[in-house]
């Protein structure tokens, strides 16, 4: 950005008034377009939040009938919704824990070491990211069917760990690539052994990357419908509850919980943005 911010006398002199007017129109046209695109992206979110305060007349929460905070006072009112949310949180917690540990170890190996089979390993980690969810879900189901495993809570956890690992590896790896290894060497020069160096230097430095990976894994897990749908048996997670209720009319409490999840996620992201913002010196764009 520094290069753009500097005055450009050469271009100022050569540009005709017409070209400058065109540049002005173009600059503003793209801003208008950008704002409209953001409105389009955010519109459904506004609808979700607004309709969590709706007081629907019948089963369907489609038209605005009146304002009420009733659904916010008892968001787990509809039968089954509380259990579904509990199942979702348990699955997400377990999957995040396992995927974060496995993914971080794998990322360390991929960045730190040169070894035989690196290319194949990379491929194995990246194909699950590119494969359509329906194929991942369907193939796991055929595995469980052929092995005679009945699907339920634990098969959901297994599936979620599987699709979260690759995302954790990618996230932690990105953080490790920019890592200054001189810090580790300094610790070793000062007498720390490899294990002390890892716990006191390496881990604290890559902790933000691990945290980012864990947050990503948690949000992917709690949001997942397709893969869960194939491997859930009779267990109902929050997205499965929403799917089941879609045919009969979704209760406004679903909007309340959707809004809550959105609020928590946005709060975490905003905290991160503000943190980075404050650390960036003014004018150093």
């Amino acid at each position: 950005m520094t290069a753009v911010a500097q005055p450009e006398p050469a271009r100022r002199r050569t540009a005709s008034p017409l070209a400058r007017a065109w540049a002005f129109v173009r600059r503003n046209a793209i801003s208008v377009f950008g704002v409209l695109a953001l409105v389009y992206l955010l519109l459904p979110i506004v609808v979700v939040i607004v309709f969590s305060f709706n007081d629907p007349a019948g089963r369907y929460n489609y038209t605005w009938e009146g304002f009420t905070t009733e659904h916010w006072t008892n968001p787990f009112g509809p039968p089954g919704l509380g259990d579904a949310m509990e199942a979702s949180l348990k699955v997400a917690g377990l999957a995040t824990l396992a995927a974060t540990i496995l993914g971080t170890l794998a990322a360390l190996a991929l960045v730190r070491y040169h070894f035989r089979g690196r290319g194949a390993t990379n491929l194995l980690i990246f194909i699950p990211l590119a494969a359509p969810e329906i194929v991942l879900g369907a193939s796991l189901l055929t595995l469980f069917l052929n092995w005679g495993v009945s699907t339920g809570f634990w098969t959901i956890v297994i599936a979620h760990i599987m699709f979260c690992i690759s995302f954790v590896v990618v996230t932690v790896r990105a953080r490790l690539v920019g890592f200054d290894r001189h810090l580790e060497e300094a610790a070793m020069d000062l007498g720390a052994n490899e294990y002390v160096t890892f716990w006191k230097v390496t881990l604290p430095l890559i902790a933000p990357g691990i945290l980012a990976g864990a947050l990503l894994a948690f949000s992917l897990s709690i949001d997942d419908f397709v893969i869960t749908n194939f491997n859930s048996g009779t267990t109902v997670t929050f997205p499965l509850y929403v799917w089941g209720s879609a045919r009969l009319g979704v209760p406004p409490e679903v909007n309340v919980i959707g809004t809550m999840i959105f609020g928590v996620a946005i709060a975490i992201m905003l905290a991160n943005v503000l943190f980075q913002w404050r650390r960036t010196p003014k004018g150093a764009q």
């Binding site: 950008g34 992206l41 979110i45 949000s219 909007n255 992201m269």
Partner: peptide, 23 residues
Amino acid sequence: LLLCIIAPFFVTYLIRTLAWQNI
């Protein structure tokens, strides 16, 4: 602005699709 781009991801996939049903 980037946060605005990924904001839809923070609303459960099914819920944001149902919001389009509504819209």
